[in-house]
């Protein structure tokens, strides 16, 4: 039975859906924790400490990295198969059918943009926080990096604020299609629920992205106002 997640199209979509939904759940937690940096840097730093170089945080980080890798590997695998299935000759004239979302046709590109910024984001934060704490721990020292200060420092640069906003717009497009599409691929859709899961998907993606975006926008505004 187990092989069908590799050798059947619906099985591959199952893996894509489950990993995608798990990553959306991660984004939800991440966005809620982030928002504290505006209201209470103390609470934010406490969360950073809680999720520092502890065994449970490290296991969760590894699990998360695994999910990302699975999602990305399957994305390239599926896209390659789909590219081949389209055939060698392409249409000379191709018009989009009404009702086809732009995001749904550009998930790989959007995903690649998101991935590129994740690399930058890991360098900006994870490298300076959890990794440093872990390295310190291996040397027998105890280090707690103050996350709120790092956030303030990075977003003092308007360029970084704008870069993060662009990233989040790409993420929004990726999520608006990805969320309902995952539910649909898992079979959780019918004539009644298809329009509903699309609406839920749009609201959910918008809330998550707005929570994330509040931070660079907040720092952009307070820095511009001096």
């Amino acid at each position: 039975m187990g092989l069908f997640i590799f050798n059947s199209s619906i099985g591959r979509k199952l893996i894509m859906s489950i990993s995608g939904l798990a990553l959306i759940l991660f984004l939800l937690f991440h966005s809620i924790m982030n928002i504290f940096v505006i209201f209470s840097p103390e609470i934010y730093d406490a969360i950073c400490k809680f999720l520092g170089a502890n065994w449970y945080a490290l296991i969760a980080t590894m699990g998360l990295a695994f999910l990302f890798v699975v999602h990305i590997v399957y994305a390239f695998w599926l896209s390659l198969q789909n590219y081949i299935a389209r055939g060698k000759e392409r249409y000379a004239v191709k018009k989009n059918a009404p009702g086809v979302d732009w995001a749904s046709q550009n998930m790989l590109v959007l995903g690649a943009i998101v991935l590129g910024f994740i690399a930058l984001h890991l360098f900006n934060f994870w490298y300076k926080m959890q990794l440093q704490e872990l390295l310190a721990k291996l040397n027998g020292e105890v280090l707690h990096v103050e996350g709120a200060a790092l956030v303030q420092e990075l977003f003092a640069s308007p360029v970084y604020c704008l870069l993060y906003i662009v990233w989040l717009v790409a993420l929004w497009f990726h999520l608006t299609h990805g969320f309902w599409s995952a539910l649909h691929s898992l079979g959780g859709s019918n004539t009644v629920w298809l329009p509903r899961i699309k609406v839920i998907s749009n609201i959910f993606s918008t809330v998550i992205v707005l929570l994330f975006m509040a931070i660079p926008v907040y720092y952009l505004i307070i820095n511009l106002l001096g």
Partner: peptide
């Protein structure tokens, strides 16, 4: 190819077959 739920099929289908059938197939198959 593998379905990515773009919905182009439903929009171009001369008989208006709904993509909710795809969700049913996924359920049946899984």
């Amino acid at each position: 190819g593998n379905c990515t739920n773009t919905g182009a099929c439903e929009a171009e289908c001369p008989k208006n077959i709904s993509i909710t059938n795809i969700a049913r197939l996924n359920r049946e198959f899984l």
